Computed example of a mutant assay.
Amino acid sequence: MNATCVIAQPIHPIGAEVLRSAGCTVIEPRNAAALEDALPDADAVIVRDGLSAAEIDSGARLLIIANHGTGTDRIDVAHASEHGIPVTHTPGANARSVAEHALMLMFATARQAVVADAATRRGHWGFKYQRPMMSLYGQTLGIVGFGRSGQMLCEMASKGLGMRVLVWSPKAEHELIQLSCGHAVDSLDELLEQADVVSLHRSMKPENRRTLDSAGIARMKPRAIVINTSRGGLIDEDALVDALTQGRLFGAGLDVFDTEPFAATSRLASLENVVLTPHVAGSSQEALYAMASQCAQQVIDTLAGRQPVDMVRPGVWSVRRRNVVVV
């Protein structure tokens, strides 16, 4: 296959191996400047950190943009579609990793794991007398959104921890929620008022922005926990920080933020009742392998003239850009 694929950010080595075995030339730029230089000659690009309209325009030969992950909000999908460039993603490839990470953040927040670790290292063995901790068994978990990671977390929490699980999702069928051991509620307000832990699992679409706003946070129990492994824009971050600072919430476990990376002066960084991770929920080695493999196969299929799986806008295929690629 006489084609060039640019891997814009580091992925699992299996991705490049699969592409090279199919005869592709693989370019892995080391920085933004190198990426800019590589895009004009690329027939395909695999991205983890998005692709702007300007970057898409610079890729005059692009036949596919393969997104390494589920969320495509940082890719200008509309602009790519207008130019006949399919955009793919990898839903489900990292869902279990994300669900496990959400569960980890629940435990770490409830049991004060980060500050307990710091106390231990300082030799502060009186920590247990000074900081409240929370058990998850028997608590109510509210899952907002019910994609694959939400479904997996539902089963883990209900079957593994004996938690009562409430689910609010405008799209999910009640039968699917019940099969996953959850109980559907009719409104977000109902979920927020009952949940001891709220975990967000929605995609970042304009209509989903600030799903958890200041009014919603005010409805939550005074000792509730907020978990977010989806997108930072789903939460009004200022309202969350205010509630955490004022003791109106027990704590939060956050893997995603409004601005990434956030500034060192962020108020979140100063809070001891928050557990922070740098957008790594979907980055277990198993998930990285699966996402890289899927992206590589999507690229190969597209360059060979076969419609790839998991196109964000399947209708683009019939009007796709058609450069000459020798297979």
Rank of each mutant, 00 (worst) to 15 (best):
V241R: 11
P10K: 09
G59S: 07
S97E: 01
N273G: 01
P222H: 13
V87M: 01
I85Y: 12
E272I: 07
D196L: 01
R210H: 12
H201F: 09
E193V: 13
K221I: 05
E82G: 09
Q9D: 08
D73T: 09
W317I: 02
H79Y: 13
N94R: 11
G84M: 03
S187T: 15
H183K: 12
V45W: 10
I65D: 02
L179W: 11
S214W: 00
W125K: 14
R111S: 03
R30G: 13
M220C: 15
L62M: 03
D37H: 04
V241E: 13
I11R: 07
L271K: 12
A108Y: 02
A34W: 08
A22H: 10
V299A: 08
V47Q: 01
P40G: 11
L39I: 15
V274F: 12
R30W: 09
A44T: 00
A224N: 12
Q130A: 15
A215P: 02
R209K: 14
M163N: 08
K221G: 05
V197Q: 13
T302I: 10
V309W: 06
V98S: 06
P314Y: 00
A263D: 15
Q130L: 15
A42S: 10
A296R: 09
M220L: 14
R122Y: 02
Y289K: 07
V144P: 04
G123N: 07
L200T: 04
K128A: 15
I85H: 09
Q194V: 00
V165Q: 01
V280E: 06
D189P: 00
M104Y: 14
L62Q: 02
G160T: 03
V326S: 14
S318Q: 12
A287N: 00
E286G: 13
I7E: 01
R248V: 06
A287I: 02
V319C: 08
I85L: 10
V185I: 07
L244N: 13
L153K: 06
H101L: 10
L136Y: 04
G216Q: 03
E36L: 06
A296I: 02
A304I: 01
L166I: 06
I7V: 12
G160V: 00
D236C: 05
D310S: 13
V319M: 09
G315V: 02
E82M: 11
V327L: 08
P278S: 05
L35D: 01
Q151P: 10
D186V: 10
P222T: 05
I75R: 03
A157T: 04
A243G: 02
A32T: 06
I235F: 11
A54C: 12
M106D: 01
A66R: 06
H279L: 03
S21N: 14
T229D: 04
E173V: 06
G247D: 08
S81M: 14
H279C: 07
D236R: 08
R148Q: 15
Q112P: 00
A290D: 09
A290R: 12
A281V: 00
P13N: 02
D37Y: 05
P29L: 05
V274Q: 07
C5G: 01
V325R: 10
A3R: 04
G23R: 08
L35C: 05
S293H: 14
I64N: 02
A113L: 11
A95M: 01
E207W: 10
A215D: 14
L200E: 06
